[in-house]
Design a protein around this nucleic acid. Sequence first.
RNA 1: GGGGAUGUAGCUCAGUUGGCUAGAGCGCUACGCUGGCAGCGUAGAGGUCGUGGGUUCGAGCCCCAUCUUCUCCA
Length: 871
Amino acid sequence: MKSQDIRATFLRFFEEKSHLIVPSAPLVSKDDPTLMFVNSGMAPFKEYFLGNGIPKKNRIADTQKCLRVSGKHNDLEEVGYDTYHHTLFEMLGNWSFGDYFKKEAIAWAWELLTEVFKIDKDILYVTVFEGSEEDNLPMDTEAYELWKQFIPENRILKGSKKDNFWEMGDQGPCGPCSEIHVDIRSKEEKAKIDGKDLVNNDHPQVVEIWNLVFMQFNRKADGSLENLPNKHIDTGMGFERLCMVLQGVQSNYDTDVFTPIIREIETITDTKYGVNTKQDIAIRVICDHIRTVAFSIADGQLPSNTGAGYVIRRILRRAVRYGFTFLDKKEPFMYRLTTVLSEKMGVAFPELKDQKQLIENVIKEEEASFLRTLEQGLLLLDGIISSSKSTQISGEKAFELYDTFGFPIDLTSLILSEKGFTLDEKGFQEELQKQKNRSRAASETSTEDWIVLREDAFEEFVGYDYLEAEVKITKYRKITSKKDGELYQLVFNLTPFYPEGGGQVGDTGFLKDHQGDLVYIIDTKKENNLIIHYTKNLPSHLNDIFQAVVSSEHRKLSASNHSATHLLHQALRSILGTHVEQKGSLVKPASLRFDFSHFAKVTADELRDIENFVNARIEGKLPLEEKRNIPLKQAIEDGAMALFGEKYGDTVRSIKFGKSVELCGGIHVKNTSDIWHFKIVSEGAVAAGIRRIEAITNEAVKNFYVDTHSTLSEIKNVLNNAQEPVKAVQNLQEENADLKKQIEQLLKEKAANVSQTIQNQLQEINGVQFLATKVDLDANSIKNIAFGLGQKHENLFLVFATSTGNDKAMITCYISKELANERGFDAGKVVSELGKLIHGGGGGQNFFATAGGKNPGGIPKALEKAKEYVI
RNA sequence: GGGGAUGUAGCUCAGUUGGCUAGAGCGCUACGCUGGCAGCGUAGAGGUCGUGGGUUCGAGCCCCAUCUUCUCCA
């Protein structure tokens, strides 16, 4: 059975059991702050388990792309070494939201595996939760009894809390689970060791394929459990492993999910999979990672140096590193795998096909930049090796190379061992740990339990129509972070506050109680479909009815920038071409930022055209045409574009200004004329193939013009109202440069004169050409004279004094080098001693030193005293 | 979000505890050498030492702020 058929069969099976089939959610999770990527099939449905939203149907099935780079069984650094762990994998799942429970879940799982997929019953094992004293939970006998109908008791194993109790996180829904494992070893192997001893023991051929989670508890912040009002089913089956079993191969990488990619890697790198262990690992690493990186870019998550983007960069770099070391690829090559990947997986995941060009460009550029980093690191490492006195390189040095210059530690130790050096691994790990602690301490937050004031399932958003509303607080909790200190999160029964989303920042405003006391709302965010209002303190009368008021200024400017963003998007597609797609957007009161795919710098002419395009539509006074709750299909037919990496419900909201149509949940102006004016302030690159435009509207544009105009008039004013200020400044600059040169020349001449005069005043005392005198020159000229004389005469001992203004004096001492060395003179000491006489101090080297002070009256005395050094 | 590094001539970079008149290589200009080319020689131009403050007799170097680029961690 081909992998594509396996996927289709699974979905059809559950469709026949009345499940709604939904497409995979995007990899990057946007409304869950605890998660960077979707890491399990249930993640996109979290809001339903938490009771913050209602699913379209209470039975759903899907295949979900998941990304895991850390966790108990999956460390990024382990992927590639075995044959069954991946960073990106598909999870087939069926879900019940308060509908069927253990009985159906178990029976259907068994039916699908043994009757539809025809897996031999004798190679299957199941596990059930054995109970936990710590949580005061009994064994899951319900599941045990159900399994007994299908499978002999000796193949039903009891598992501990670690393996058979599933939790979403430290807090939240959880419950016992039951896993199905499969033993695909040969007969001989099975005879040697009983399969049940290998279950849950990291054996590559005795693996878990399906986990059935019975969600029935809620874990509170203090660790205690309470029963959930509705029980749910959450199952997840590893697609790649299922393919391995059904295709009768011993490794996920031998299934047709991966073999086409492996063949392509063999061609590109001129190697053969299955010949050399190290090369095999490298090939698996590349094969796995290219999928992750490509899917992620397709969903709009580009490699970057922070957050989720950094995870993607690390994965890509890991693959490049393996190619570099074990397959001898010293130039970009991974981007060439994009074609085969989009051909093979583009059917199930069309985003790969549509975004192919972008994926290729981004990967190629990332590879090239990492290879540059490697090259630089190699040079630095050479430097460290050649300057090292011992054959052991310290952990600190290696860590610096890694931390500051991005040179991978495994390459460092490889190169060191090739050259007969060793690395202080322990020291390195210590440094790494120190850094981790620093980062963790800086971002630590603690979250308390929700305190529920009233039961109210849904928090209605009324902000499209109202800026004020009478609200009640339904629940609240306290969060503490190192950065922001103590904050409170409030949830209302209804709210006019727009939560951060769709690129637009959250609303701010205040709550007013019956006594007129105010509590300011500093931000609004959405978390698992819940609108959360942030305050610095708690209202004193929590059960009051509050007047909730959104800052209208904040709102007006955000709306203006948001609507302008839509017009900008339209302008870009119209002027640069339809290859332009939104890749990111930030809308705040002060400005807007828009990232989009485009492969060249936007020229000044194009920028002007774009500005004009947008401003024409502002002047056109286009009214807002808003449609709420229309079917996605209809919105698309109206001309709206769905974005990759964005999750859409069945019904959407569409925002139309003239010919600009977008799916958008944000706040907009009622008429484009409210935007007043649109002005681009910058254009630049953010990644390969991605450009960024920053622009302003409304008040900001007014301020911009007022500021620039007043600056310009000030400049003109200073230039005596010059007609052409630019030219006037250029003239001034030229003149200034000329004058500087002239002054330099004059000073030189003056110095030459002075030095001529001075030469005649040299006095020979004890074989020393001595002179101590007051000169009327600046510090630099004195220096020039001293060194000039130094080239002409030997055995010089010069002391110059000068004063500027009434309260500044300076003493300079020059002694010919040979003289200073032979006779032990020290100019530094001379000036610091003479400096006291002018109420100051100074120093320098033994042949040249300066001192400054604030008593010019002491100069004659100092000059007098200078003689004492040579007598 | 938290660290580290980086910015000096058109380019690639040196520049020691703050002080020996801001340097090297390549490139550029002029002149010269060589039969031509490759090349060589001589001379020269080219610098707000990222930016803005501060400390100091004196700052490329130290302190504070800010920007660029790179990089690690969360």
